[in-house]
Design a protein around this nucleic acid. Structure first.
Lengths: 141, 141
DNA sequence: TTAGTTTGAATAGCATGCGATTGATATTTA
DNA sequence: TAAATATCAATCGCATGCTATTCAAACTAA
C-alpha cells in the first residue's frame, strides 16, 4: 500500500490536536489537561489516597513530572498531600472537594471533544478503530 | 460497545510511547526527535531555504517553539540561517552537509521503530488502521 | 505620503516532559 | 546486627510546547 505519510505522523497529528483542544477547553478553568487527567485518576478512588509513585505509574510520566503536576494542583487547593505513616518515604495525594467540583465540570467537555474528533468515522469504523488501537496498545508492554 | 478506556487515552498512550522510543533512539546522536523531524523537513528541499514561518506551519508548532528548535540545530551546526533580501522580516533556514549526514543515519532507526510498534497487527489490519487514521486526520483541519 | 494594520521574528514566562543526582527511608544480605 | 542495596521523593538542568508581548518591516487605506 502506498503511503504518503507514515502512520506515526498521523498518530502524532491526532494526538497533538487532541492535546491542544483539551488544553483550550481547560484554560477557562485555570487548568491544564495533564492536571485534569491526574485529578480524574484521583477521583476514581475519592476515599483513598494515592502515592506519588502510583500516580506517576498510571499517568505514564516520570517521577519528577508527576511531582510538578501534584505541586501545582496542591497550590490551587485541588489536592492535599500527607505522609504515609507506614512508610515514611511515601507521599500520599488525595483529591479535595474543590478538586472534585472541577472534575465534574470538565468531564463533559472532554467527552464532547473526543466525539467531535471521531465524527469522520461511521459507527462501524469507530468500533474497528477502537479494537485496533487496543491491539497496538496491548503490545506496548 | 463497552469501553474500559476512551480511544483518546489509547491514542495518547501510543503517541507517548512513540515519542519516548524516538527520543531514546536519537539520544546517541545528541538529538531530539523534534529536531530530527525539523531536519527531515528541511532535507526534503535541500537546495532551497525555508522560512521559519513555513517550518512552524509544517511542524504544527507555535512560532516560538520552531524558533527554539532551529536555534539549537544552528548551535550544533546542522542548519544555517540567513535573512531574506526580498522581505527583511523573514529568517531563512537551510540544512547543512553535517545536518544531512545526521538525517541519513536517523531515517533507518525511525522506520524500524515504527514497524516494531505495528507488530501486533496483521498486514490487513495495518491497511485498515492506516485508512482510518487518515480519515480522522483529514477531518481535523 | 502618512497613518493604521498586518506580518515575521525575538523574547519572556510558564507547564510538561525527560534524565540525573541527592537524601532519607526500607529492605536485604552477609 | 551491620552493611550493602533498593526505593521514594525532592530537586536541578534542559528541551519542547504554549500564550502574550514587543519590535521592525511590509502592506493598505486615507
Amino acid at each position: 500500500m502506498a503511503r504518503q505519510e507514515s502512520w506515526g505522523k498521523l498518530i502524532k497529528q491526532i494526538s497533538d490536536v487532541m492535546r491542544k483542544n483539551a488544553n483550550n477547553a481547560m484554560r477557562s478553568q485555570d487548568m491544564t489537561i495533564s492536571q485534569m487527567v491526574a485529578l480524574l485518576e484521583l477521583e476514581e478512588t475519592p476515599e483513598k489516597q494515592r502515592s506519588l509513585k502510583e500516580l506517576e505509574q498510571c499517568l505514564h510520566v516520570a517521577q519528577s513530572t508527576a511531582a510538578g503536576i501534584v505541586s501545582r494542583l496542591e497550590q490551587k487547593g485541588f489536592v492535599k498531600t500527607l505522609g504515609d505513616a507506614e512508610d515514611r518515604r511515601v507521599k500520599l495525594v488525595q483529591i479535595t472537594p474543590a478538586g472534585r467540583m472541577h472534575v465534574a465540570d470538565a468531564k463533559k467537555d472532554m467527552s464532547q471533544a473526543e466525539q467531535k474528533l471521531l465524527s469522520a468515522l461511521t459507527d462501524a469504523e469507530r468500533d474497528i478503530f477502537y479494537v485496533l488501537l487496543q491491539k497496538v496498545c496491548r503490545s506496548l508492554s
